[in-house]
Computed example of a mutant assay.
Amino acid sequence: MPLGTLDRSPPAFFKQGPSAISKLLLFSALSVLLMVADVRFGVTQPIRAALSVALYPVQWLALRPQQVVEFSSDYMQARDDAQTAERQARQQLLVQAQRTGQVEQLALENRQLRELLGLRERLSTTGVMAEVLYDAADPYTRKLIVDKGMTHGIKPSSPVMDEHGILGQVTRVLPLVSEVTLVTDREHSIPVLNTRTGARGVAFGEAGGAPLLELRFMATNADIDVGDLLSTSGVDGVYPPGIPVAKVTKVERRAETAFARILCEPVGHVQGARHVMILESLADKLPARPQIDKPQPLGNLKGGRR
């Protein structure tokens, strides 16, 4: 082969092209240009959208094993919780069935004793279910707005309760909604009875931040302990007797004052109630208050001095 026909160029293995530094500078400048263009003009947004659509099936397939494991774990946990709740519900149902029989027997005995003694029959109340719409806008009061009003037969001063106990009473009635003042409002008071000792008192809403009640005007030597249950006494003509109101959580007996400071926690869900029952007020069923004659001046009495 003639020497002039030989290819004197180096093999492709030895061809390096541009240097590494020039490539670094080129791609760095291109990256900065793309970032500035993306921030200012959003040029890469369509590319991102297209890539997200293209990669979605891959992401969906990659997440399937994890979701299957989580679903299986949640299913097993939910099944165990459901079985536990069912057992507890059956136990509570048996206890309530036993108590229902006892209550019916006690109610029969109570009615017979009242007839024997000639006492007035106990008043019965009916209720209307309502749903809590929202809390009142005033941050210094504790009130709720429910979806029952004047058109549903709601009247002012009607007691309001949930499945646990008393929540408060209706203080304002509008055509379609009503305002409920909670027992923890600082302007609210409710006569209560200690179910352990039978002592009566008056619980007021606590003005502090926590939703509590204060049992006021109780002597320092009064028989009351932490854990005592307070229920409605029924002496105010508003609340039916025997409905739970609060539990005593703190008793402070101080030597410098004649009254103890007693704080109570309401048993009703005053901060998380969704469905409530508005009871019929007892004011319309109670007999009218007797009118007390005003004392006459001594000069008008028979035989008095003139």
Rank of each mutant, 00 (worst) to 15 (best):
S73T: 13
D74W: 10
Y75W: 11
Q77G: 07
R79D: 09
D81S: 12
A82N: 10
A82V: 06
T84R: 13
R87H: 10
A89I: 05
R90F: 14
L94H: 11
V95D: 08
Q98P: 03
R99W: 05
T100L: 13
T100P: 02
E104T: 03
E104A: 05
L106H: 04
L106W: 04
A107C: 03
A107K: 07
E109Q: 11
E109W: 07
R111N: 07
E115R: 07
E115M: 03
E115S: 03
L116I: 09
R120Y: 07
E121G: 00
S124R: 15
S124A: 14
T125F: 14
V128S: 05
A130N: 05
E131G: 07
Y134M: 06
D135E: 14
A136W: 11
A137D: 06
D138S: 09
Y140V: 13
L144P: 06
L144Y: 03
I145W: 09
D147V: 01
D147R: 01
D147H: 01
D147I: 01
K148R: 09
K148Y: 00
K148I: 02
G149T: 00
G149N: 00
G153E: 04
G153D: 04
S157W: 10
S158D: 08
E163I: 11
I166L: 14
L167S: 06
L167V: 07
Q169M: 13
Q169L: 14
V170N: 03
R172I: 02
V173T: 00
V173W: 00
V173C: 00
L174Q: 03
L176R: 03
V180F: 01
T181G: 02
T181I: 05
T181E: 10
L182Q: 04
V183F: 04
V183R: 06
V183Q: 04
T184M: 10
T184Y: 08
E187Y: 15
H188C: 14
H188R: 14
I190H: 02
P191M: 00
V192A: 01
R196N: 05
T197G: 04
G198I: 13
G198D: 11
G198F: 12
A199F: 08
A199Y: 08
G201H: 05
A203Y: 02
A203P: 02
G205S: 14
E206T: 14
E206G: 12
A207S: 14
G209D: 09
G209I: 07
L212P: 01
L213W: 03
L213N: 04
L215K: 08
R216C: 11
R216M: 12
F217D: 15
T220Q: 10
